[in-house]
Design a protein around this nucleic acid. Sequence first.
DNA 1: GACTATTCTTAG
DNA 2: CATCGCTAAGAATAGTC
Length: 890
Amino acid sequence: MPLHPFAKQLQEHKFEGEKGEEYEGHEYGDFGDYFRKKLTKLENQFQEYVPVESDLFKDCIIYITGYTRPSAPELRRLINAHGGKICHYLAGKSYATHIVASSLTARKRQEYAKYKVVKPEWIVESINSNKRLPWHDFRTIKTEYNHSISPFAGQNSNAATEDPDKQVVDEQVDQEQVVDEPVVEEPPADQIPVDSKDASIPNILDPKFIEHFYKHSRLHHLSIWKGDLKRRFQKLAAESNQRTSQRALPATSSCRVILHVDFDSFFVAVSLLSHPQLSDRAVCVSSGSHGSSDIASCNYVARKFGVHNGMWMKQARELCPDLIAIPFDFEGYEKASAALYEVLLELKPDLLFPVSVDEALVDVTSLIPRNGSQDEGFQQKVSEFLENLRKEIKSRARVDASIGAGPNVVLAKIALRLAKPNGQKYIPASRALDVIHPLPISHLPGLGYSSVKKLASSKYEITTIGQISSAGQQVMIELLGNKIGTKMYEYSQGIDHTDISVIPSPKSIGVEISWGVRLADAHEVDIFIGNLISELCRRMKVQEICGSQMTAKLYKRHPQAPINPPKFLGHGHCEIYTKSSSVFPLTDQVETLTKIAQALIRSFNCPPTDVRGLGFQITKVSTTGQENTNQGTLNFPKSTTKNTDQLTPQTTPRKRTLTAPRSSGSLTPKKRPMTPDLESSPSKRGPTRAGNAPQFMTVTQQFREVRNKREPKEPKEPEPVDLSVLSSQIDTDVFAELPPEIQREIALQSKRQRKQPNFDPSRGRRSAPTEPARIRDPVISLYKPIEFCGMVDESSIRSKLRNWVRESASNDRRPYREDAENVQRFLITTAAEDQDWGKSKRLADWINKQVALCMGAATNEDILHEWTLLTEIFSDVVRRVLRDTRGITV
DNA sequence: GACTATTCTTAG
DNA sequence: CATCGCTAAGAATAGTC
Ligand SMILES: Nc1ccn([C@H]2C[C@H](O)[C@@H](COP(=O)(O)OP(=O)(O)OP(=O)(O)O)O2)c(=O)n1
């Protein structure tokens, strides 16, 4: 039986790249030889292996450094024997829960400040007393744990020092991590002024952390506001429907008037009400005024300098040195919003569809009388209507609003863009194409950063709406996929089928936090998950929503990202993993959902210290309450609009029109029991147990045999890759592929690490074009696609690599040297010669991710470590080759 | 080829 | 000292059988 089909497949293929040879070996170190030595080393360790005697250090991953007594090998043996794991390198993906050291230099002291550094006696005495003693009593560094990474003023360590003896039932937790009731320090009354308490951030494990974070998070506010508005208008619509008993409105019509109403630079405008003297200066709203603070909103003065919402302060200051930052005023935003919606409701429009706290779509067709299809005076009437409406909003909300108007939603939205700031614009159907074709495609709703770039860098070089029109629907589908492609083509024709008469019912509910998340160990992760799920369940109950599936999301620090990202307590550059599991029976109970959530997160097997964010979403929802599951529509009894819907061919809307009456006819909501619902789930699978894929039957001997057979081949001389160098160097990235904010973040990050930053995205783009070479330089293109096992297509290669990792994982196999060398050679060649310079980096990341995903708890520690090492080597080599051959460096 | 899970993209 | 990087929907894509 072939134990290693993959190895063979890889071996059979020879790489074409002539340059492959010279990159391999000498310049970048003979990785094969390194690898062989590594195996040898691991073999030696294997000989030291002793049977497990206890679980004392379960979940501990321990790094030993410096001279110790007992000696390091002896400590390793002890730790292994008592359920702990040894970590051989601190850097990169290797991680440690504890460091054992007798003494530390000042430098190391600093470096290890965030770790639990203990004396070797901790190990010895814990074993002697047969229980894990509080590490705190054996500290090597006599300052408070967490001091350097936590802004939380030692709350954690207070808890520890004050309850050193408190026993914790959970076996996984160190005693010092008792946080059931985090001690929140009350400031001494005599010296701390009233509001200074407000400024401090609660410990991440404290349920108050989430409360605090939400209170300050603009994005949270935006989302919550939006949800509230949605529900409010859904409900309103349901009531209004009941009263009218019949839906008075057509889903669409060819000659409606839709408004898109939106405040100008909303947050700034409102916040400026408290700082009127700054009105004509460049102003923005943000949490902080330092470099890594996000700009939530900036006024039009600042925009002239190129500043925009979502930009970081640092960059904005470069563009606009005089930029002034003022604080959020969430209450003010709510008030202005309330005023806006009040005005809009008073209009008694045909339809009112909330878009966000500061904007709404309004169908006012029946409010502006039209005499026949020939307008003449109609435009004038619209204009006056808009003028009056804007005046009314301004007087009630005290901030400027702009309004776009058109015969459908997309034209109204585009019109709004043209109207701003403090203006109005109506695009009548007759002039639609003339108006929109010259505009950049970024004006189209649905085309964001990524799609705009994709269209521009395609061979069609599409940058204007007119070009979409000329390119045709098929081209758009080719570039953007079926749905979006079709929709964007239609937009380019001024056509939009969007129906705002229905506010769709919720399809998911979730929470996520990726700021301030710094967790020391598995137990802390579990606690924080519990807090998140509590919040989630609270909302589920309020909204009467349950769902049969949970999806967990993990932000994991990218292996090459620094521990401390540029943004204070930010998530930094991360890998994002998601995984779902079924929830059965339906429930909104915290305990049940927490267990599921914890299992999902555990299945990622992420070192707790690398967790930078967590999120959970309930999907496949059903409403639990008696309230409407009917889709709401907001129309008003007085409305007399006629249904003139014959002309426009409808797809989605028509479908809905058919189903809607049925569900609103029978007012019975499709309520579902929250508790066991056996009959409704005959076809349902049982909950997929997260993270339980135990791979037994690992025949270690077999592998050793195989390995030995394959290993002793042509030994080579060159030097091994130096891992310490490897992990300390800076990440190379696919700059042109990343959103600008991310690019900046990575740039900042590397600046922090390096004395001299060497970063120039435009250079990267120029020297490694994905397409442009074709145009300017069709003949001399040095870059060509590199084959791997006969494949060029990136997704095929991914599959191949994935299978490699996965098969190895399921068989508890170490990476074969031949395979590893082949992959590395391929990566090198790709990095150096492939037309798409980002490919090598993406594939290296892909391998890393597959290793993280596949090499779960089932895999033996040494093997996992080896794969981890391998991914680090791949990433490093790719980075270096990119730098040396293309000058692409971060 | 149909079905499911995961990832990507967008918006405000 | 910093800073508060959320939420939901829809669609594409990858994976499974
Ligand atoms: N990345 C973003 C985008 C928006 N917002 C907030 C602040 C904005 O004031 C509000 C409304 O967003 P808009 O997109 O409507 O932008 P503005 O109202 O600020 O400016 P304008 O609508 O004039 O372009 O949402 C935010 O916090 N972060």
